[in-house]
Amino acid sequence: MKRASPFPDVDPAGVPLLEVEGLSTRFRVPGGVVRAVEDVSFTLHAGRTLGIVGESGSGKTVLARSVMGLLPHNADRPGTIRYRGVDITGWSTRQLVGVRGPEMAMVFQDPMTSLNPYMRIGRQITESLRWHMGLTKAAAASRAVALLDEVGIPSARLRADSYPHQLSGGMRQRATIAIALACSPRLLFADEPTTALDVTVQAQILDLLAAEQREREMGMVLVSHDLGVVAGRSDDIVVMYAGRVVEHAPTRTLFAGLRMPYTQALLAAVPRLDRPSHSRAAVIPGRPPDPTAIDPACRFAPRCPYVQARCQAEEPPLVEAEPGHRYRCWYPVAGPLPRSAPAVSPARRG
């Protein structure tokens, strides 16, 4: 028996799938407060993909988890999250249990750690099927095999009985995708879904996600440190730095005229097929600031090649360059891309 959903069966027209307004996420730690996410807003419609890009530590993963309520006990989360028109910000864990799975799901960065190593793959799928959809043991089992098959796992029946360590990395990530898709969610968070994988299987996994999204008309939030990954597979892009949105635009618009020096640096750091793949963040000199520090300056100033006096005195607000394109910089870069323009075409998405 399917559990009662708190959401209408048919969404009223024009209501976005997900609206996030002024969301901040803070962790109380000994010695201060870590401001992991500061004042983030965005909107995502069904069937669309939002890319969230930033270095590690920029708050993108926390942002995704904040929306699903997957935060530790020491977290505060002011702001508003509306899902299918319903404000779910203040919902308790008990209420969110009904949201996670059939409404929202998540694919994690490393399938090695995100799969429960002590449980057979099949079991990890069937348990949510049985819990949320009320399927019988047998029905859940055959559904699990079908899901594994759907995500491209060969001899799925056999694999359902395997433990995660008995699978290859790519297969494991396919399995986590199967887990995420099990209850047919309307919104999928893919948190760096390919970072831990071999280059050769990265594209396969991304294609699989894209295909599933199309087929199921899911909304997807694709989180990556790699602007190149997001570029071809998203409708909108949010660039985050030190917990803040520093640039936010439709993908095409962004690549047509990015304004934020950090976005520019990220773009320059995109690994390219003609260069050996290695650590990306090293390309941008310096490190992100201490997330506990409160400093009335532009967060990127210490690493910005264009830094000026004002950048160190005042934090720039998020301003609009054109409708739908916002950025956070006193001295935005403009016009054509620098020499190291990406090899990836921003308009590849079909």
Binding site: T93, R94, L96, R100, F108, N116, P117, M119, W131
Partner: peptide
């Protein structure tokens, strides 16, 4: 604090089940 617990929570499993089963 392991990822697989976060995944289990992301699956919408109730706390009790996560604690005991996972």
């Amino acid at each position: 604090q392991q990822d697989f617990i976060t995944l289990a929570r992301a699956k919408g499993l109730p706390d009790r089940r996560i604690l005991l089963r996972h």
